[in-house]
Structure formats: C-alpha cells, structure tokens
C-alpha cells in the first residue's frame, strides 16, 4: 500500500518575487513616511485657506465677459496656432529620430541608443522649462512657444512612433526588397503604410496635450492665452482669470472630444 503523495501547495509567487514585492512595499512606505515628516508646510497659512479659497471664487464670479473680445479671443487663436505648429514641427523632427531608434530599421545599437537619449532628455525637461530657455534665445513671443512645444513633444512622439515602427511586420518589407526596390521605397511603401495610422494617432494625442500645455507657456512669456492669464493674475483681476480658465476648459473639452473621435476611427 503506497502512501499518498504529499499535497503540493500552490503558490502564486516565487520566494524571490515575494521578497522583491515586500522590498518595494517597504521602500514605498519609507518614502511616504519620510516625506510626511520632513516636508515644510507653514501651518499658519492653512488656517485661513478655506476663507482664501472662498474669496477667490467670489472674486471670480461674475466673469468679466467684456474682456473676451478685447484680449482673450486673439490670445486663444494664438494658443491654438502655437500648439498646432509646434506639433507639426515636432512631427518633422521626431520622424527621422524614430526611424533611428527602431532596432528593426536602423541596425546600429549606438544610433538606437543615441535617439533614445534624445527622446528621454526631451521628455524630462518640462514644457515650461523649455519655454524659459527658448524665451532666452528667441525673446518673448509665439516663436519661443512653438519651439518649446516642439522640443517637448519630440520625445513623446519619437518614443511612441519608434515603438510602432518596431512592431511593423517584416513580410511587406521582404517582398519589396525581393523586387529590388531601393531603400527609400522600402521605407515609403513597405513600412510607412503599416505605421501610418499609429503615427497620426500619436500626433493627435500629442496635439491634444499640447493645446493644454500651450495655454500656460505665456506665464513665462512664450505667447498665447497664458500671457493674458499672467496679466490678469498680476493685476489681481480675478474676474478675468475666471473667464480665461472657463475658456481654456471649454476649448480643452472640445479638442479632447474631437481627437478621441478621430482616433477611434483611425485605429
């Protein structure tokens, strides 16, 4: 009579996985406790925060509607153009870099890596910080805004488009190579049609983000509705601030509805 085999115990995680997870949890909790204990918060400011916030909204309402035709409309159009032109420039700059970063197209680890470094640097520097640099270079105005939107977007578009390129099927490429097509034709007719929907989808996604971002560039002098916002803020015209915020809200919602509609049809 054989003894029954000992019941095997089922475990979801290996011991190593469990240790890694506990370590991550401990690190997270430690960071949290340390931040809570050491962050500098001036409690005196907190006592009247509710009154201050209420005061803010009282001063915002009713909006200064007369301000819209005077200064907001033109600035809004400018913001729209800054975001769009910046996105287009970013597309032009990011496309060759994305081809460089895709390992199945550019077979040179050094170039792949170089493109990746450029993407990460572009994404690490915030749009407002890019704007500071470009205002120093081109002076205040829309040009600095366009450049900062473009440079901030290169990393985002390049990374996502590069990933789409790496997922492209090899079949059409091989077929074209077999016909003796030159390299440029292989890219244009073998790879591009496969990635075109994701390219435009990424472009629209970034355009949507850029509309939001370009609304604040004016705070450091890079043109658009942010300039009007900055003026209203420094003059403490809260009814104008409220109007500008409402306008930004409406535009952002409309743009988001448009882009999600188009993207749903693209993919």
């Amino acid at each position: 009579m054989s003894r029954p085999a000992p019941a095997r115990q089922w475990q979801r995680l290996t011991p190593v996985q469990r240790i890694v997870r506990s370590m991550l949890a401990i690190i997270g909790v430690t960071a949290l406790v340390w931040s809570f204990k050491t962050i500098e918060i001036i409690p005196e400011f907190l006592y009247d925060a509710p009154e201050q916030a209420a005061d803010l909204f009282v001063r915002m309402w009713p909006f200064d509607w007369a301000f819209y035709p005077k200064a907001v409309h033109a600035a809004l159009i400018e913001t729209f153009h800054i975001a769009t032109l910046g996105t287009l420039l970013a597309l032009v700059l990011a496309m060759p870099l994305a081809f460089l970063s895709a390992r199945n197209i550019t077979r040179s680890p050094v170039l792949n890596w170089l493109a990746q470094v450029l993407f990460v640097s572009s994404r690490s520097v915030n749009s407002l910080i890019w704007a500071l640099l470009f205002v120093a270079i081109f002076g205040p105005g829309a040009l600095a805004g366009v450049m900062s939107i473009a440079f901030r977007s290169i990393g985002f578009i390049g990374k996502l488009f590069g990933e789409a390129l790496e997922e492209a099927q090899k079949g059409p490429v091989d077929a074209l190579v077999a016909t003796g097509a030159p390299h440029a034709v292989v890219l244009a007719k073998g790879i591009w049609p496969q990635v075109e929907p994701s390219f435009w989808s990424v472009a629209l996604l970034r355009w949507d983000i850029n509309i939001r971002e370009s609304a604040v560039l004016g705070l450091v002098g890079a043109g658009g509705i942010g300039v009007a916002l900055d003026n209203a803020l420094s003059n403490l015209y809260w009814d104008q601030v409220g109007l500008i915020m409402a306008v930004i809200f409406v535009v952002v919602i409309i743009v988001e509805m448009i882009t999600t509609g188009i993207r749903a049809r693209l993919i």
Binding site: E40, I42, Q52, L56, E213, A215, V216, L233, I248
Partner: peptide, 28 residues
Amino acid sequence: IAVCRSFHPIIISILFVKAVGFGALAGM
C-alpha cells in the same frame, strides 16, 4: 474628473498658491 484633467497643473498651482500661500503645500 473632466474638471481635474482639463487644467494644466501650473494653473491649478496658481490657484492653490493664492488659497494656501507659497510653498510645497500649494504644489502638492
């Protein structure tokens, strides 16, 4: 959620700087 998402963090920061004063709390 739409209201939270529509405004750039910088614009929200400006409002909080007014409400709770300069410093890390407003940014947070």
